[in-house]
Design a protein around this nucleic acid. Structure first.
Length: 579
RNA sequence: GCGGCCGUGGUCUAGCUGGAAGGAUACUGGCCCCCCAAGCCAGUGGUCCCGGGUUCGAAUCCCGGCGGCCGCACCA
């Protein structure tokens, strides 16, 4: 049995996750997170919030999962997620039409429609590469889930394939509510949906999954990151384009600063978030040499990105797997939404020195126009008010033709040219996007925490993502022990901890059970407790035991999760070893 | 979706040359319990993935589907 299988078995057994809808045979690509899995994911998400949002004073929003068609049309997803597929009528194999034709040496652009594809297929008599059978009619396959909003079939919507569009469509409101703080980071933790053709790899590729995304809006003219200094010497494992193009398989390690200087990473913000992502995963128990950043080449990138590094973690069964994506989206998204919605999504930039601009104002003189064209005056004024293009024409040619009969030269206008000082200019923010897959991270954490000790499983979850804080056990199931254990349990629960109480079964079995869900410590009430009011404290990872005053249990827990180290707290509190 | 392998209590599995589904473990109750899945007793739990076919009779043979793993394609 390989490790992935053991981990997945443990996860089912202990209520972390399992395939959804099992009673109906299951549906590929859907997962249910169980009681422990939900807590694990919540802890990871909370830690992510602290680490990426709160630390920088960024903000979080929650926008709908469903968006009207136009949002994803504007964002380019309708186009980008749409593939033209052809099906072999004989063996039922499906192919992407453009890839198939290109493989046959026929150069076609992705932009062609199904009808054009069909005629090219007919013309070149292309057959199925698998069985030589006749190909059917090409048709679209959209990998976004489609739905109808309200009762009208015409009102199409999509389940979002990424949360990011929410940050773009709602950008102006958030920006205003935050009193135009800039640069600004807007985050969202939520569900995304992708109708994968054939999802595999258990918890790794899902049709519905949680994402933690941050859109960092920055000024394209000032791409420096104020936090960069604190991380510039950190080393990153970069499997970057130059290495890939050379055909090498190993990543190269260099400091964040060097990567930016050598223009391997496009700017400081990208590099900063990559270092942060590395630290984040390290804290979650994934060693640095099991992480790398894999740069995506032109054809591999999403349609909106000009640079993408995938943060990958090495998993036992599947090799390098993406856990986060770091994309430089430039002004792609805001610009697209400005164009499609016609709304102002610009940000003001205050200039250090005022810019001198020569401004020409052209104001028509209605009296003069009326004198010459008394009957058409209404039409002319309407045209001049509503159209804009004539101004340039007037300056260029010295006159304009409104219709064949109506010509106005410069004498009909008051033209003023003046020099103005401008203190503020508009620009479209650029976006740096670190985007994390929560389900994948949760799985990764589980796999890296999974250890075996003397034929037993110990889930060494980092304390920061623990599912329970501690367990309280009476050594044996008897009245006196139970009473003391109960009261300790109540005290800890009241203090806000998540605590397990169990009296059944042998003590060894109970320890084994809590090891499997990674409970950091257990307090055990035993004979000595009756004599001197101390309890045994047991460490999950070493199985070492110490004596602790029962009245210090609360303090012990607080210190434990403050310093995240069992041995340190044992030393600090000068606990007596039992072994 | 294609090809290969696979599908039996929660989990792991025996049975698969057709003839009453068995074990281990887990779970529940009890006994014994003073530190790491101990032991003893009793008990619950199975549409043998689903549907169809062959047969007097199918977990077992045949066909189709669903699901899983691996390879191919896909993963924007």
């Amino acid at each position: 049995m390989d490790k992935a299988e053991k981990v997945q078995q443990l996860c089912v057994k202990r209520g972390f996750f399992w395939g959804a809808y099992e009673i109906y045979g299951g549906v590929a690509g859907f997962l249910t997170w169980g009681p422990n899995g939900v807590i694990l994911k919540r802890r990871i998400a909370d830690y992510w919030r602290k680490f990426f949002i709160d630390k920088h004073g960024f903000v979080e929003i929650s926008s709908p999962d469903i968006a009207p068609y136009i949002v994803f049309e504007a964002s380019g997803h309708v186009e980008g997620f749409k593939d033209i597929m052809v099906t072999c009528l004989k063996c039922n194999n499906k192919y992407r039409a453009d890839t198939l034709l290109n493989e046959k040496g026929i150069n076609v652009s992705e932009a062609l429609g199904p009808a054009e594809m069909l005629s090219i297929i007919d013309e070149h008599k292309v057959k199925c590469p698998n069985c030589g059978g006749e190909l059917g009619e090409p048709g679209y396959f959209i990998t976004m889930f489609q739905t109808t909003i309200g009762p009208y079939a015409g009102s199409k919507g999509f389940l979002r394939p990424e949360t990011a569009q929410g940050m773009f469509t709602e950008f102006k409101r958030v920006f205003e509510a935050e009193r135009k703080k800039f640069p600004i980071g807007i985050a969202q933790v939520g569900r995304g949906y992708r109708n994968e053709i054939s999802p595999r790899q258990g918890p790794i590729r899902l049709r519905e999954f949680d994402m933690m995304e941050l859109e960092m809006f920055i000024d394209p003219q000032d791409q420096r990151c104020p936090y960069f200094d604190s991380v510039k010497d950190e080393e990153l494992n970069l499997y970057h384009r130059i290495i890939k193009e050379k055909g090498e398989l190993e990543y190269e390690t260099m400091s964040a600063e060097e990567a930016v200087d050598k223009k391997i990473i496009i700017n400081e913000w990208m590099a900063y978030f990559m270092v942060m992502a590395q630290k984040f995963m390290e804290t979650l128990g994934i060693p640095r040499n099991r992480q790398r950043f894999h740069e995506k080449l032109e054809g591999e990138r999403a349609h909106y990105a000009t640079q993408t590094f995938d943060q990958e973690v090495y998993l036992s069964r599947w090799g390098w797997i993406e856990v986060s994506g770091h994309a430089y989206r430039g002004d792609y998204d805001l610009l697209s939404h400005i164009k499609t919605s016609g709304r102002d999504l610009y940000v003001d930039r205050k200039l250090d020195k005022p810019k001198k601009v020569i401004q020409t104002t052209i104001i028509p003189d209605p009296k003069k126009i009326k004198d010459k064209y008394p009957r058409q005056i209404g039409r002319i004024m309407k045209f001049l008010r509503e159209e804009d293009s004539w101004k340039e024409e007037l300056v260029d040619k010295g006159y304009i033709n409104i219709t064949d009969e109506i010509t106005l030269d410069k004498s009909f206008f008051n033209i003023k040219t003046e020099e103005k000082k401008i203190w503020v200019e508009k620009f479209i923010p650029h976006v740096v996007e670190p985007s994390f897959g929560l389900d994948r991270i949760a799985y990764t954490v589980l796999e890296y925490s999974y250890t075996e000790k003397e034929d037993r499983v110990v889930l060494s979850l980092p304390y920061i993502v623990r599912v329970f804080d501690c367990a309280v056990f009476p050594l044996v199931d008897s009245g006196e022990f139970n009473m003391i254990a109960r009261s300790l349990y109540n005290e800890l629960i009241d203090a806000g901890f998540r605590v397990i109480f169990e009296a059944k079964d042998s003590i060894g079995r109970r320890y084994a059970r809590i090891d499997e869900i990674g409970v950091p410590v257990a307090f055990t009430i035993d004979g000595r407790t009756l004599e001197d009011s101390t309890v045994t404290v047991r460490d999950r990872d070493t199985w070492r035991q110490y004596r602790l005053k029962i009245s210090d249990a609360l303090v012990f827990l607080r210190e434990l999760f403050r310093y995240n180290s069992f041995t340190k707290v044992v030393k600090m509190m000068k606990l007596e070893s039992v072994d």
